[in-house]
Design a protein around this nucleic acid. Sequence first.
DNA 1: CATCAATATAAGAATATTCGCATATAGTTG
DNA 2: CAACTATATGCGAATATTCTTATATTGATG
Lengths: 113, 113
Amino acid sequence: MPDSLRNFKAEIFQALGHPTRIAILQELKRGELTVNGFVERLGLEQANLSQHLAVLRARQMVVTRRAGNQVFYSVRDPLILEMLDLMRRYVVRQVDEAVARVEETERAEEGER
Amino acid sequence: MPDSLRNFKAEIFQALGHPTRIAILQELKRGELTVNGFVERLGLEQANLSQHLAVLRARQMVVTRRAGNQVFYSVRDPLILEMLDLMRRYVVRQVDEAVARVEETERAEEGER
DNA sequence: CATCAATATAAGAATATTCGCATATAGTTG
DNA sequence: CAACTATATGCGAATATTCTTATATTGATG
């Protein structure tokens, strides 16, 4: 694979690699939202949210629509949301496996006595 | 969603957010590989690769198997590889759209003359 | 136009990531 | 055990990310 493509992929993954930006995208699953909307839903500083939104904008992961005073954000390509869904499946599986390992250990310790 | 889950997701995404680690995982699609294998395939420093592998190990995204002198790495959960596939689809779509936009612009400029 | 509300940007401090180089560890073999 | 091979780790410098605070920009409204 060409380096440039790999760098591009890495930039997208990296943009996804922050809890606040994940929260932003999850809110956008429900539809578009203004910056103030994010502030209210997530309880974070406006400037901070603007900066995280700027990261997503720079990578064209979100698009904006201006309506008077406000700016509505939405996800540009739903594949981004699919990435989040896939990650959710991954997390669920990891947690399940971790629980299973703990239970296995407990059974083993039970047998020890 | 609980914060801890979001942080966990962010950590995985962040681990995916480096070109070298993407390259490592892509190599692992073909099967397990030793550190020296990565060095040869990717042409990077051994220490550097070990460090990137340590990042993937810390997040349990890869597992190791020791055979004598060598350590074989492999992907722990194939869902990680699905993430890469999904990202590939995303990149292809973005490139296609970008090309389409350029062509559209060219048509518009053609009409201008 | 003065003011207000919504959003974006700038600047600096704190922290984290990445890389190169040196060195440590573990297993192998003579 | 000495030498060798494969891999991991420690450390410092360079760079990047993140947050907070202050300020700039943009559109709306009296």
